[in-house]
């Protein structure tokens, strides 16, 4: 009986894995097929000969520049968000100051309320401030959306670090900054990685903020560029899937590399509440 349930579970798991991964494999396959095979009936999973033509067409259309934009925006946004979030997260644990609880609740509320509901007023505000359609717009917005999460993650971690560790370092002859840098932060690596990886996934994958804040083709992010490409070449599925693949590689590689920290971060967060 137990043996049967195990087999059943394994079969279900395998089916679930196929459903999760299959479409991605299909996209990769489409992206390297020649056009005549793309529309073949019945469809073939493994192309008889592979080609990188579709990727070449994306480059010919300048889509790779959007890839670069996405990377720059995401990296700037995530590194500044994690840096600022870590400072705040540390302050919330180790310092007493006025309105501390109110400010903490503000961060938590900012994390809970999705940015989308505020995007329209933000757009008008950015137009007024002269930030609309500038290279600074998206790094600022992405950073703002990631900061509350970074505060939440790092605060939870710092709260679990005994204050004696910092005291010991102070007694051992280190300044407070040195103590935090050499003793507290090395242990915070999982929290920092989780916050950064999550922030990167968010920023890299965003479409809606990007499409509403950027007009110029040369400032576009990759998802927006793909939608525009689709608008002009709607039936060029080979190139579209090639775009899907290059848009998917960075976040999926990042996720696979740091899955332990991401899954751990969310598990701990949920168990601790």
């Amino acid at each position: 009986m137990r043996y049967v349930t195990r087999i059943l579970a394994a079969i279900c798991a395998f089916a679930a894995a196929i459903v999760a991964i299959g479409p991605i494999v299909w996209a990769v396959s489409t992206s390297v097929k020649r056009n005549n095979e793309i529309f073949a009936v019945p469809p073939k999973l493994i192309p008889s000969s592979a080609t990188l033509d579709h990727y070449g067409r994306l480059i010919a259309e300048g889509v790779h520049w959007s890839f670069v934009n996405s990377a720059i925006y995401s990296i700037i946004a995530v590194s500044s968000a994690v840096a600022l979030g870590t400072l705040a997260g540390y302050a919330f644990v180790r310092f007493e100051f006025r309105m501390k609880n109110a400010l903490l609740h503000l961060f938590m509320a900012a994390m809970a309320i999705p940015s989308y509901a505020l995007l329209l007023p933000t757009q008008i505000l950015f137009v007024e401030l002269g930030l609309f359609n500038t290279p600074a717009a998206l790094p600022i917005l992405y950073a703002a959306h990631v900061i509350p999460f970074a505060v939440w993650m790092t605060r939870a971690h710092f709260a679990s670090v005994p204050i004696e560790l910092e005291h010991a370092a102070a007694v051992d002859g280190y300044t407070r900054f040195e103590a935090v840098w050499r003793v507290v932060l090395p242990g915070a690596k999982p929290a920092l990685i989780a916050a950064a990886a999550f922030g990167f996934l968010y920023a890299w994958n965003d479409y809606i903020t990007s499409t509403t804040m950027i007009d110029s083709p040369e400032l576009r992010t990759l998802p927006v560029a793909l939608i525009f490409f689709q608008g002009f070449h709607g039936r060029d599925w080979g190139a579209l899937m090639a775009g899907a693949v290059i848009a998917t590689i960075p976040p999926v590689v990042l996720f696979l590399a740091f899955r332990r920290y991401l899954i751990g971060g969310f598990s701990e967060g949920s168990v601790k509440g």
């Binding site: 894995a17 939608i227 998917t248």
Partner: peptide, 12 residues
């Protein structure tokens, strides 16, 4: 494996 789609962009 199940989380791989979660890492992808909704638009993609």
């Amino acid at each position: 494996v199940l989380l791989v789609p979660w890492a992808m962009s909704p638009i993609v």
